[in-house]
Design a protein around this nucleic acid. Structure first.
Lengths: 228, 228
DNA sequence: CTCTGTCATGTTGCATGCAATCTCGCAGAC
DNA sequence: GTCTGCGAGATTGCATGCAACATGACAGAG
């Protein structure tokens, strides 16, 4: 489904190489290849990716603006590290804001959006049914949630929300999948699809809220999250 | 409590020159020196500010990430332009989100924060009492609101909110000050200070919400806003 | 043994050169 | 007269060189 592959929502669309580097770093961070707190050196990354320092700098700044890395003036960037409270606060906020975007988005969803939602839902269920692959599951889940955010009809809300739930992906590394909460999440996704198909924004909003709160609860005891 | 002085909230803290350029561009945009839709050329700005293109590039990217300028791949940056609906939506969202930050922030405010709030309030009132200088008024107002956002205790909420209410400042160019709504805003600010001094987050939240909604209403008929 | 001052190293931040891309105007053909 | 193709100018994007700052080790004094 077309979907902007690297441009995301905030359209900080830079060049060609720069986008590639950004996407690569984003993937590595979200898949836990970089440990939390690990320093990211411009030159090392540049050599490793076969580009110069400039696009790496750009990508790191972009990640910093999105809250995925911390930067200190003359020291550079390091992957953000979350405390348990940080994660809890993040969920608290998502629970308040993302449902709003959801309600706004539902009436605006087109045919292809709905089709994509159904497909993503189906693929996630397939993964859960079989042996689950955490990395792929979160990717699909992010895409699923992203549809609502990106279609909310307000660029700035999209930017704001990306800033809120992008950082959450870095905490996913040590996640443990609890079968029960996973099942509950799948049901929530199904309900979201139904609500979307029905064009019922309020329903979708309510489902999304309980979905997020339920997930928050499931992760209350651990330092990891499970934002599926 | 350390206080970051120039790093703002999202701490995309870059270098020295880069920050200066960013601040300068932000000021010019918010004061309407750059028209909406106007293209911003790197080299021209660099010459004008007496620096090289690099820090200008960085600043523009930062502004793009915050939604203050639009960038297209090989064309550069231009100041965002808002339709009336965009502005309305922005207020709608602020009304939902900023009060939450306000509630979270109030219990966390220190002595110096309270003192600053009082001072900012006093200065704004002084300006309103005399002949008002729009530019300075909005600057103070932004600072006033920023205190709550920055002290909300969650970095990511701060980033998200900056994304929401930073863009609003660009629409201020043609604003017209309606004496009555201005007076109402001043009273709201006073109440916010009182609530903050009392440490009553819920009160502050309620005041902030009505403050924003009132402002939205005041700007409903125009294409400009009046976020004081 | 501990603490402090100095120095070497590494990294970021800024400046500049070069290539790729886009835009716009103009000439020529139909 | 209108449309198409070409070319010059301009602007961004990437690469690289240089200077400033921060960090860490080591030597020397107390």
């Amino acid at each position: 489904m077309a979907q902007e592959q690297a441009g995301e929502a905030g359209e900080p669309a830079s060049g060609d190489v720069s986008d590639r580097v950004y996407a690569e770093l984003l993937t590595r961070i979200s898949e836990g290849e970089f440990a939390a707190g690990e320093r990211l050196f411009e030159q090392a990354l540049a050599r490793q990716l076969g580009v110069s320092r400039t696009p790496v700098r750009d990508a790191l700044k972009r990640l910093a603006a999105e809250g995925l890395v911390d930067t200190t003036p003359n020291k550079g960037a390091q992957v953000v590290s979350f405390t348990a409270e940080d994660t809890a606060a993040l969920y608290e906020l998502r629970a308040q804001f993302e449902p709003v975007a959801c309600r706004l988005a539902v009436p605006r969803l087109g045919e292809e959006d709905l089709a994509e939602l159904e497909e993503l839902d189906a693929r996630m269920q397939a993964i859960v049914a079989g042996g689950h692959d955490p990395a792929e599951l979160t990717g699909l889940n992010n895409a699923f949630h992203a549809i609502f955010v990106e279609r909310c009809g307000n660029r700035h809300l999209a930017i704001a929300l990306q800033a809120l739930f992008r950082p959450a992906i870095v905490t996913r590394t040590f996640r443990q999948y609890d079968p029960r909460s996973l099942e509950r999440s799948m049901q929530a996704h199904q309900q979201l699809v139904e609500a979307a198909l029905a064009g019922d924004g309020e329903w979708a909003e309510a489902v999304m809220r309980s979905h997020i709160l339920s997930t928050r609860h499931a992760t209350a005891g651990t330092t990891s999250d499970a934002d599926v």
